[in-house]
Design a binder for these strands. Structure first.
Lengths: 156, 156
DNA sequence: ATTACTGCAAAACTTTTGCAGCGGT
DNA sequence: ACCGCTGCAAAAGTTTTGCAGTAAT
């Protein structure tokens, strides 16, 4: 697996800030880039990383996630399932999350429609708004289909 | 402390659903109503409840929170500080949270401006949207004042 | 060579669970 | 009197930390 330009950008970022570029960090960054659409938790990421380098410890994954978060490469998001999940900040030009309450699938919606909402709230509260986080909860198309099929079955 | 009509409404709710109205549950409900604007965590709530009835166990608090959440009396919210905080659902006609990243203060904004955003996202993703959660992160007025004062001091 | 980084194990912290006894109904 | 609820303590799950050894610069 050749290393992407994106990975190299992160490596450079680490070195600029005088952090060492270890094998573990390279693999963790690579894995995060490869999982860009799955929002992995620390534990899930750890499993994937171990496929490539089995002796990596979970603590290293946590420490690296912490580091990458401080470098603003990734960002922790909480979907209320008891663990922090991570996404690349480069993805978030500005997007929202749509979570299916049945199967847990998370989709992203690239669109920022919240500019004027922010302005209005800033005015009303006196806060300086720096960021926002919008999650929408519902049922995805597949699950709705399944539910409807089940209903049809039980109605006979 | 006389029991509010609101508390009584919750008690009735519990009994309708065949749950027993224990002293612990009454006190927990009362405390939640009294803390409506603080978004307490289970542990914080437990401390407050113990002021009134010291032998209440933390597990009971968790179990009661769980029950009240299932009865849709309260709702867990995650502000990313590692513990679940709770708010009354009666408060959420539809509101958003504004969190100060410096002092942690949470303010609520009562206004729902997201109807058409929801519609657009439903159309685009195929999801049936049932609910949403908008958090805004920034710096509150007091903290900005403090920061500016500090800056002024260090500039001399 | 230096010293940041790692793996492991232990600790810390939030939340859940098992069980014997208590208390609403 | 029944059986749901409670307190306690133990367990479970996620994240953090201490430390001795390893590896990047």
């Amino acid at each position: 697996m050749p290393e992407s330009t994106e990975a190299k950008k992160v490596y450079r970022r680490l070195q600029e800030e005088d952090f060492k570029l270890t094998r573990q960090r390279r693999i963790i960054v690579g894995t995060l880039l490869r999982c860009r659409d799955t929002h992995p938790s620390a534990e899930e990421l750890h499993q994937l990383v171990r496929e490539e380098l089995p002796e990596v410890g979970l603590a290293t994954v946590y420490r690296t996630l912490d580091l990458l978060e401080r470098l603003d490469v990734i960002r922790g998001v909480n979907f209320g399932d008891g663990r922090t999940r991570y996404e690349l900040t480069s993805e978030l030009h500005q997007h929202h999350h749509v979570v299916c309450g049945r199967c847990g699938r998370i989709e992203e919606v690239d669109e920022d429609l919240l500019g004027d909402v922010e302005d209005r709230i800033a005015e009303r509260t006196g806060f300086t708004i720096l960021d926002h986080d919008l999650k929408l909860y519902g049922i995805c198309l597949d699950c709705r289909q399944t539910i409807e099929d089940d209903d049809a079955g039980s109605e006979l």
